[in-house]
Amino acid sequence: MEVRTIKVFTTVDNINLHTQVVDMSMTYGQQFGPTYLDGADVTKIKPHNSHEGKTFYVLPNDDTLRVEAFEYYHTTDPSFLGRYMSALNHTKKWKYPQVNGLTSIKWADNNCYLATALLTLQQIELKFNPPALQDAYYRARAGEAANFCALILAYCNKTVGELGDVRETMSYLFQHANLDSCKRVLNVVCKTCGQQQTTLKGVEAVMYMGTLSYEQFKKGVQIPCTCGKQATKYLVQQESPFVMMSAPPAQYELKHGTFTCASEYTGNYQCGHYKHITSKETLYCIDGALLTKSSEYKGPITDVFYKENSYTTTIK
């Protein structure tokens, strides 16, 4: 009895394709271990004539594949690729409408935090270190965002349907971005203890939790000093293409032309909904596939993004 075979390709990165001759009487799992086709788990399936010449994702289970996976995804987590594939199996079914010149995501599976993050990423200057993220990001900007969303979920250790947080998501993504040249110098002034300067680099240099107003941050924000008295913390120097200011959701007025974009969060910790506000020729609110415009805006804002380049204080 002759062994019926077909020729397929296996890959971990969709760049390096490895030619395989597979036995049609055995499952993919018996031949390769966990195997995925377009995100779908085909591990328990036997090869079919229609699979001839198709590319299958496999887990990096030998040295060659491990090197290829690390170079593309910059992670050695053995569960990463499987999590990416199972997320992709959902995100490829989502709709990605162009809204006001940006790629958004039609609401499904509690994905409003991903839509808000995706919209924000198209408006701030950011370059990702893992080629996987950078490639998928370019495709997302062009309207094909399924891979990018699935990668975000995998890097953030999230599953489809789980509630997510924009600030946490951005923080994970910033860790995989090139923020080497970003720098922030802060000064804390206390009447009792004097003053202390701190220099922050990388992710810490672009994120701040405690106030939404970048102007206020430049002037000074009140913080408790270690001595128990009130101290003032203010920005001395900022070198970065953008800054992200966050605070627990509270009524906040966004003035046209003073910011790049913002995240609105309605609801409580267990259950809520994100919308995205962007400042173009007027203010726009993007909620999944829905767009509304207004000249002014007041609502429960939790993150505001500002364009920056270089700032030095005039406070002496």
Rank of each mutant, 00 (worst) to 15 (best):
E2D: 12
E2T: 11
E2C: 11
R4I: 14
T5M: 13
T5C: 14
T5R: 13
V8E: 06
V8D: 03
T11S: 10
T11H: 15
V12Y: 08
N14R: 09
N14M: 14
I15K: 15
I15H: 14
I15V: 09
N16T: 09
N16K: 10
N16D: 04
L17Y: 10
T19V: 10
V21Y: 15
V22Y: 01
D23I: 15
M24H: 04
M26F: 08
M26L: 10
T27G: 08
T27H: 12
Y28L: 11
Y28D: 05
Y28W: 12
G29V: 06
Q30H: 13
Q31L: 13
Q31K: 11
F32H: 08
F32M: 09
T35V: 10
Y36I: 03
D38Q: 12
D38P: 06
D38E: 12
G39M: 09
A40E: 14
V42G: 06
T43E: 13
K44F: 14
K44L: 12
I45R: 13
I45Q: 15
I45C: 12
K46H: 12
K46G: 10
P47C: 06
H48E: 14
N49A: 13
N49P: 13
H51F: 05
H51L: 06
E52S: 13
G53K: 13
T55Y: 08
F56D: 05
Y57T: 11
V58L: 09
V58H: 05
V58W: 03
D62L: 07
D63K: 06
L65R: 11
R66H: 10
E68K: 08
A69W: 06
A69C: 14
E71W: 05
Y72W: 08
H74L: 15
H74P: 04
T75D: 09
L81G: 05
G82C: 14
R83T: 06
Y84C: 08
S86K: 15
S86C: 15
A87G: 07
A87R: 05
H90W: 09
T91C: 09
K92G: 06
K93T: 13
K93V: 10
W94Y: 04
W94E: 04
K95L: 14
Y96H: 05
P97D: 07
V99T: 10
N100R: 09
N100C: 14
N100T: 07
G101I: 04
T103K: 03
S104Q: 06
K106R: 09
K106H: 11
W107T: 03
A108N: 06
A108T: 07
A108M: 07
D109Q: 14
D109T: 03
D109S: 06
N110P: 06
N111P: 04
N111F: 01
N111C: 00
C112T: 02
C112G: 04
Y113P: 04
Y113N: 01
A115G: 07
T116M: 07
T116N: 08
T116F: 05
T116R: 01
A117Y: 03
A117E: 02
Q122E: 04
Q122K: 03
I124V: 07
I124A: 03
I124R: 03
E125D: 14
L126R: 03
L126Y: 05
L126T: 05
K127P: 11
K127I: 09
N129K: 12
P130A: 10
P130R: 04
P130V: 08
A132V: 05
A132H: 04
Q134F: 06
D135N: 10
D135V: 08
A136T: 08
Y137C: 07
Y137P: 04
Y137F: 14
Y138T: 14
R139S: 13
R139M: 14
R139Q: 13
A140M: 12
A142E: 13
E144L: 07
A145F: 02
A146N: 02
A146F: 03
N147W: 06
N147C: 12
A150H: 03
I152W: 02
I152C: 07
Y155T: 00
Y155P: 00
C156T: 09
N157M: 03
K158D: 05
T159N: 11
T159Q: 15
G161F: 01
G161P: 02
G161W: 04
E162W: 01
E162A: 09
L163Q: 08
V166G: 01
R167D: 03
T169P: 03
M170C: 08
S171Q: 12
Y172K: 11
Y172V: 11
L173W: 02
L173C: 07
L173E: 00
L173S: 03
F174K: 01
F174R: 02
Q175D: 05
H176P: 02
H176V: 07
H176M: 09
H176T: 04
H176E: 06
N178C: 10
N178I: 01
L179A: 01
S181P: 04
S181A: 15
C182Q: 01
R184Q: 06
R184W: 03
R184L: 02
L186K: 00
N187F: 06
V188G: 07
C190V: 04
C190H: 04
K191D: 10
T192L: 09
C193R: 03
C193G: 03
C193N: 04
G194F: 06
Q195I: 13
Q197Y: 08
L200Y: 11
K201G: 09
G202C: 03
V203R: 13
V206K: 00
M207Q: 08
Y208S: 15
G210A: 02
L212P: 01
L212Q: 03
S213L: 01
Y214S: 02
Y214T: 01
Q216Y: 05
F217Y: 06
F217K: 02
K218H: 04
G220S: 04
G220M: 00
V221Q: 07
Q222P: 14
Q222K: 13
Q222W: 06
I223Q: 09
P224G: 08
P224I: 14
C225V: 00
C225G: 01
T226H: 14
T226K: 15
C227L: 00
C227G: 01
G228C: 01
G228R: 03
G228I: 02
K229V: 08
K229G: 15
Q230T: 14
A231W: 01
T232H: 05
K233Y: 06
K233E: 12
V236T: 06
V236Q: 06
Q237I: 09
Q237W: 08
Q238R: 01
Q238S: 03
E239N: 09
E239W: 04
P241V: 00
F242C: 02
F242S: 00
M244C: 02
M245L: 08
S246V: 04
S246A: 01
A247E: 00
A247K: 02
P248K: 10
P249S: 00
A250R: 10
Q251Y: 14
Q251W: 13
E253L: 08
E253A: 11
E253M: 11
E253W: 05
L254K: 02
G257T: 02
G257E: 11
F259R: 00
F259H: 02
T260G: 00
T260P: 02
C261M: 00
C261N: 02
A262S: 01
A262V: 01
A262I: 02
S263R: 01
E264Q: 06
E264P: 03
Y265N: 01
G267A: 14
G267P: 08
N268C: 11
Y269C: 15
Y269W: 15
Q270V: 09
C271V: 07
C271P: 03
Y274L: 01
H276D: 01
I277H: 01
T278R: 07
S279R: 01
S279N: 10
K280N: 13
E281W: 01
T282K: 14
T282Y: 11
Y284R: 00
Y284N: 08
Y284H: 11
C285R: 08
D287E: 03
G288F: 00
A289V: 11
A289F: 06
L290W: 13
L290K: 13
L290Q: 15
L291H: 15
T292M: 09
T292P: 00
T292N: 11
K293Y: 07
S294K: 12
S294D: 11
S294C: 10
S295P: 09
S295E: 15
E296V: 14
Y297P: 00
Y297A: 00
Y297V: 04
K298C: 14
K298R: 14
G299R: 06
P300L: 07
I301K: 00
I301Q: 01
T302W: 04
T302I: 01
F305S: 00
F305V: 15
Y306P: 00
E308I: 09
E308C: 09
N309A: 15
S310T: 12
Y311W: 10
T313H: 15
T314Q: 15
T314C: 09
I315V: 15
K316C: 15
